[in-house]
C-alpha cells in the first residue's frame, strides 16, 4: 500500500536565474519502506522532503499522502495533518531546550491530547528502545548530539505516525553515533513497521537503506531497491 505518492512535482524559486529545486519528481513509497533520498548538497533533498512532509508546497504537481491530496490543505490544516500523520527528525536542534528527554518525546503526544498512561508507557518504551532509558530527565543541553538525535527519533515515533521523515539526521554525528542511530532506526522500522524516508549524502548511511533514490539537480537519476 502506498503511503506517499508524488506526481510530477516541481518547486521553482524565482530569480534572475530561476532555481528548479525539485524538477519533476514522481515517486511512490509504500508502507514499511526504509528509503534513502541521496544526492550532493543542493540537489533538492530537503526541498523534496519538506514538500512530502507538508512543510512546503510544490509549485506544481500533486502530493498524495495516505490517500489525501495535501496540496489542497490550508496552512492550519497542514499543521494538524503533520501532527497526526508524520514524524520529523531534522538535521540538528530538534529538541525543545527547556524540556527533558521524556518531555520532548511526550510533546507531540500531548499536542494530540493522548491520555497520560498511554504517554508514559510509550515514552518509557521508546527511550529504552533508543538506549536512553536512564536519561529521561536530562535536558538536551546535558546530552551529546547523538543522544539528542536518538531522542528526536523517539519523539518522531511516539505517536506511531504513518511515516517518519528525517532530513540528514546523521549529518552532525560521528561514525559511532551514526551507526548507532541507524541501528535504532532500522530496528524500529522492522519492529513497528513504520515507514522511514531519510536524506543523506553519507555513503555509510546509504549502505543501510533498502531503497535508494538518487537526486541530481532536482531530478531522480536512479531508484534502486535491494533485498
Amino acid at each position: 500500500m502506498s503511503v506517499i505518492i508524488t506526481k510530477n512535482i516541481y518547486k521553482t524559486y524565482p530569480g534572475v536565474v530561476p532555481v528548479h529545486a525539485v524538477n519533476g519528481v514522481s515517486i511512490d513509497i509504500t508502507e514499511g519502506e526504509f528509503t534513502a533520498i541521496v544526492g550532493p548538497s543542493g540537489s533538492g533533498k530537503t526541498t523534496l522532503l519538506n514538500i512530502i512532509g507538508g512543510l512546503d508546497k510544490p509549485t506544481s504537481g500533486e502530493v498524495i499522502v495516505n490517500n489525501q491530496d495535501i496540496s489542497q490543505l490550508s496552512n492550519n490544516e497542514l499543521i494538524d495533518f503533520r501532527l497526526h500523520n508524520i514524524g520529523f527528525v531534522f538535521q540538528a536542534y530538534n529538541l525543545i531546550p527547556v524540556l527533558t528527554a521524556k518531555e520532548n518525546v511526550e510533546f507531540v503526544m500531548l499536542l494530540q491530547k493522548r491520555a497520560k498512561e498511554e504517554r508514559d508507557n510509550r515514552v518509557a518504551e521508546l527511550l529504552d528502545a533508543v538506549g536512553l532509558g536512564d536519561r529521561m530527565n536530562n535536558r538536551p543541553s546535558q546530552m551529546s548530539g547523538g543522544q539528542q538525535q536518538r531522542v528526536a527519533v523517539a519523539r518522531a515515533l511516539a505517536p506511531k505516525p504513518k511515516f517518519v521523515l528525517a532530513d540528514e539526521p546523521t549529518a552532525n554525528l560521528d561514525s559511532t553515533s551514526t551507526s548507532n542511530l541507524l541501528d535504532i532506526m532500522a530496528e524500529l522500522n522492522r519492529k513497528e513497521n513504520i515507514t522511514f524516508v531519510f536524506s543523506t549524502h553519507d555513503q555509510r548511511v546509504i549502505d543501510r537503506a533498502r531503497r535508494v533514490i538518487t537526486l541530481e539537480d532536482g531530478k531522480i537519476v536512479s531508484d534502486v531497491t535491494r533485498e
Binding site: G53, L55, N76, I79, D80, R82, L83, H84, F88, F90, Y93, N94, I96, F107, V108, L111, Q112, R155, A156
Partner: peptide, 9 residues
C-alpha cells in the same frame, strides 16, 4: 521545529 511537528501557532 515546534510548528513543524504539529504545534498550532
Amino acid at each position: 521545529v515546534m510548528t513543524a511537528v504539529g504545534m498550532k501557532k
